[in-house]
Simulated scan of single mutants.
Amino acid sequence: MDFTAIDFETANSSRSSACALGLVQVRAGIITAEHDWLIDPQQRFDGMNIAIHGITPSMVRGKPTFHELWPTIEPLLQGEIVVAHNASFDMSVLRYCLDGASLTYPNFQYLCTYLLGKKILQDLPSHKLNVISAHFGITLKHHDALDDARASAAILLKLMEQEQQNDPLLLAGSQGYKSGKMYAGGYSAFSAPAKKPLKKQSAKAKTPVIKRTSTTVPHNTYEF
């Protein structure tokens, strides 16, 4: 039950505008370390984003840029199983920030608690972080980067407990998902294998054809 949960907040609609990061380390099913940083995105702040997370330009003034902070963050992600709620967003923020700073991608596998929750908790009306947190009785200050990362970690632990799994990767596999990966030079998404499309029947094949070789028609002589 070892993994690391993360959550990014952004200054605007650009995925390269990370202004906060929360990171929670879990070892043997217990949170052992928590980290959070304000980041100077060196970009404008949109009012909508400020309204969501409450972070303003004055709050990040003098804080490290992503490039400056990366030597601290990288060892906490390298080789880990990384977890995020709606991981496609957080992983894209990480990639855009790395690309913008001309930094090499780290190597790790990652899971998405949103997709896992959607598969496992099908009776819930929504699978947003606050809804699943409320379902499990997890306290949450939504859109606080550290609190969101903490909630993601707690949700994964609850899902593992419910499904009687003690390994995050085995939990994902049991639900038909393949872990996402980030590695030097590229990445792959957390996803379920694509279903094979059904073969279209030809017009000729739509009507059963019976081949008779005797008065008794064996079952396997029908062609569809």
Rank of each mutant, 00 (worst) to 15 (best):
D2P: 04
D2T: 14
A5P: 13
I6H: 12
T10L: 08
N12G: 11
S16G: 13
A18N: 06
L23S: 08
V24Q: 10
I30C: 06
I30Q: 13
E34P: 05
H35G: 00
I39W: 11
P41M: 09
Q42M: 15
R44Y: 01
F45Y: 14
D46Q: 05
M48P: 00
M48N: 12
G54D: 01
M59D: 15
V60C: 09
G62F: 02
G62C: 04
K63N: 13
P64G: 07
W70F: 10
T72F: 02
I73R: 00
I73N: 00
P75C: 08
L77W: 02
E80N: 11
E80D: 13
I81F: 10
I81V: 15
H85K: 03
S88E: 14
S88Y: 01
S92F: 10
S92H: 13
Y96T: 00
Y96Q: 11
D99L: 03
G100N: 14
Y110H: 08
L116Q: 13
K119W: 00
K119D: 04
P125I: 04
H127P: 13
H127Q: 11
L129N: 05
N130F: 07
S133P: 03
H135N: 07
H135W: 02
H135E: 04
G137S: 03
H142F: 09
H142V: 12
H143K: 08
D147T: 04
A149P: 09
R150Y: 08
S152M: 04
S152L: 06
L156N: 08
L157P: 05
L157H: 08
Q164I: 10
Q164W: 06
Q164F: 06
Q165S: 05
Q165F: 01
N166C: 12
P168F: 00
S174W: 09
Q175C: 15
Q175A: 11
Y177N: 04
S179V: 06
K181N: 07
K181E: 10
M182C: 11
A184F: 08
A184C: 12
G186E: 11
S191K: 14
K196F: 00
K196I: 12
L198D: 07
Q201D: 05
K204A: 07
K204M: 05
K204S: 05
I210K: 09
S214H: 07
T216G: 05
T216W: 15
T221W: 00
Y222I: 15
E223R: 12
